[in-house]
Amino acid sequence: MPVTKTRRSRHTGITLSRRAGMVFVLPALILFVIFILYPLVTALSYSLFDWTGIVRGDFSVLDNYVTIFTQLPYKDAIPNAFVHNILLFVGAMVFQNTIGLGLAVLLHRVRRFKRFFQTVYTLPYLVSPLVVGYLWSLMLSPLFGPVNAILKGVGLDALAQPWLGNPTTAIWVVVFVTAWQWVGFPVLLYGAALGGIPDEIDEAASLDGASSWQRFRDITGPLLLPAIGTVSVLTFIGAMEAFAIPYALGGSAGNPAGATDVLSLLFYRTAFESGSSNAIGTSSAIATLLFLFIFGVALLMTWLMRRAERRLY
């Protein structure tokens, strides 16, 4: 009897725990369904119909998808915008896994003023991307921007140029500003991961004669792999969804001459500025394809990272 009562009490405790967990999860689930899942399903349904303004027409199956890959301006704008999204991702990843990781390691080793510098590096990440983009557009202005003024002041007049007016440099400005704003995120995440590594492991390797680089390569680096995976996936999602900073720096047209265009800007122009009678159907097709690509690649990246973790551990 005591054993049976103990089992029943444990079962009751687990059931209550699960119910309590569901109560806490339910608000987030409701918000997810309303603001994410429902719009996604709606966009998918819209993309399967012809539209005349806001009036839904006949069921068109995949006609809207064929349109964006075979008709101008979509068949030229989509590859151009897609390449820029990939550049944003690669640039942010390189920036975060070099400078971001380096800053996290330095802050982990230097205890003095650690909180202060963590706050300083995180502040840009907490500011609205639209505000960040507009501030950088002012600083890079060829007329009154401080960047060109500083370059001219130190004798580097040849480097002073209209950064956002030159198609060659404009996209790299977007990449830099995006990576600059995001650097605070990996600093915090890598800092937390470094704090979870026992100091005894590093001390034991040091006593065995391992150099700082060897300890980082063979011990710290592999233990940071879960954090690197998280940063990689979230950076990919953020880069593919980028809108605010490209919009602030290049406008809705991705100026100059489409040099800063990204897929979200293309969706925005198609939906609100194209003047097409079938704008809803075409823009919904772009949004659906963008979601499917992000979702599929994010799943693949997560699977590859977990597979790499299992091999290490």
Rank of each mutant, 00 (worst) to 15 (best):
I171R: 15
S283D: 06
L225P: 00
V33W: 05
T260I: 04
P256V: 07
T52Y: 11
F267Q: 05
F144S: 14
L123I: 14
P142W: 11
L16N: 13
V131T: 13
D199F: 07
V147Y: 07
D218I: 08
T119H: 00
N97Q: 13
A28Q: 12
A77P: 00
T220W: 04
A20V: 14
V94T: 13
T220M: 07
V174H: 08
W213I: 15
K5M: 10
L312Y: 07
L263T: 03
F82C: 00
L103H: 08
W136I: 10
P27Q: 11
A77M: 01
A285T: 11
W163H: 08
I171P: 01
A43G: 04
V131F: 05
F35D: 06
A43K: 07
A160C: 06
G275I: 12
L207I: 15
G251I: 04
A192N: 01
A287K: 02
Y268F: 10
T169P: 04
V61T: 06
V233A: 04
P129M: 09
V94M: 10
G153T: 11
R7D: 09
R311G: 03
T4I: 15
V41A: 07
D261Y: 08
G13R: 15
S277R: 12
G191R: 09
H108W: 05
L223W: 03
D157W: 00
R7L: 15
P198M: 01
Y65T: 12
G296N: 07
A20E: 01
P124S: 03
P79F: 09
T260G: 02
A193W: 02
L223D: 06
V231D: 03
T122E: 05
T6I: 14
G251K: 12
M240N: 03
G275M: 13
T67M: 09
S264I: 01
V127G: 05
D199N: 12
F116D: 00
Q118T: 11
A287W: 01
R306T: 04
A192C: 03
W51L: 04
G196N: 07
A92I: 02
G281Y: 12
R18A: 14
S206I: 13
L312V: 10
F291P: 00
A28E: 05
S232D: 02
F267T: 07
V105W: 01
E200K: 06
M240R: 09
L299V: 10
A170S: 11
V120D: 04
G195T: 10
E309D: 02
P129L: 10
H11G: 01
M22W: 15
A205I: 11
F82A: 06
W303L: 09
F295P: 01
T122A: 05
G209E: 13
W303R: 13
Y268L: 03
A298L: 04
R7I: 15
T288Y: 03
L135E: 09
G251H: 07
L189F: 06
A239I: 06
V110R: 14
L290N: 01
S264G: 05
K75W: 08
Q214V: 09
V177E: 07
L263A: 02
V297A: 00
D199K: 10
H108A: 11
S211H: 08
A160G: 08
G57Q: 11
S276Y: 13
I68T: 10
P27A: 08
V33L: 12
L266A: 04
G57N: 12
